[in-house]
Amino acid sequence: MRHVITLLVENEFGVLARIASLFSGRGFNIECLSVAETLDPTVSTMTIVTRGDDQIIEQVLKQLNKLIPVIKVVDLIDKDFVEREMVLVKVSATEKTREEILRITDIFRGKVIDVGSKTYTIEVTGDEKKIDALLSLLKPLGIKELVRTGRVAMARGSKAITELT
């Protein structure tokens, strides 16, 4: 089962390497990962999407907690949460497809952020399903390149991650 894990870590060198090597060393998989500084510059937040049965996820959470620079680990799957991802897509644009691309972008509330003589570059944010749906529509039109940020996620409601249990 897919799990979205969010963690607070010390914002210091080597932390990402520690987490990555924990996953590779123990045979856990990372579907995607994003990391950036929080309001407190000494702390970073990380969102990891991973898959595994209950026993594996239990180990993932415990092993993450065991790392000294990891301050807090929350598995959002147990909670009501929102997740978003941004994608940049460079799509081939011909006279025939230009209109269609713009229409799809519009439907997905995306933006065209760069226009070339033969391509459009589109920016769209959304959850995984929305991004996948967008890509499946654009694919037949000719995707030249795409870059996804990986998920960021947050629990719904008034509590911050530091207050979650």
Binding site: F13, G14, A17, S21, G25, I68
Partner: peptide, 14 residues
């Protein structure tokens, strides 16, 4: 050595 010993130390520091 920090990279090399990361998986076999409880923690390490440079």
């Amino acid at each position: 050595i920090i990279g090399i010993t990361r998986p076999c130390t409880k923690h390490n520091y440079l």
